[in-house]
């Protein structure tokens, strides 16, 4: 997952999404120690305060936790990670379905199209 930003949404909320994806995809593993805000900001090319705010949001959502002296860690709660995966998937599906509706697909036609296309995708 690259640190790429669109021009419509606040950078902070895009950081939250990218960090979640990194956790869900296993790039940051459960229980793993995260890089410091300074290092991760430099990697992402963003303001450290914005990164700090995104981390704080992940903390509020119990995806990461701070241990006073040792730093910041990804949660070990695999169910919490799984929940985030589903949340992200749901968001993507919703916007996909909306777009397909705009393209004129009925629900049954969309399902048929998906079934056919997924069949073509190699595992």
């Amino acid at each position: 997952m690259e640190w790429q930003f669109d021009n419509e949404r606040p950078i902070y909320s895009q950081l939250v999404d990218i960090l979640k994806l990194k956790i869900v995809s296993g790039e940051y593993k459960p229980g793993e120690r995260l890089p410091s805000v300074r290092d991760i900001s430099s990697e992402a090319g963003v303001n450290p305060n914005t990164m700090q705010r995104a981390m704080q949001e992940l903390e509020n959502q119990n995806l990461v936790l701070t241990q006073r002296t040792a730093g910041r860690f990804v949660t070990e709660d695999k169910e919490r990670v799984e929940m985030t995966r589903e949340e992200l998937a749901e968001g993507h599906i919703q916007s996909f379905v909306k777009l397909m509706e705009q393209l004129g697909y009925s629900k049954s036609r969309l399902i048929a199209l998906l079934a056919a296309k997924i069949g073509e995708v190699k595992e």
Binding site: F5, E8, R9, P10, I11, Y12, S13, G45, V46, N47, N49, T50
Partner: peptide, 27 residues
């Protein structure tokens, strides 16, 4: 440069026309 800024100040013809955070402008 906007990704590394907290706030922006817009100035034009010597006058400050806006002081706001980057993410507030985007939102």
């Amino acid at each position: 440069i906007e990704k590394i800024l907290d706030d922006v100040i817009f100035i034009n013809e010597g006058k400050i026309s806006l002081v706001e955070s980057v993410d507030d402008i985007r939102a």
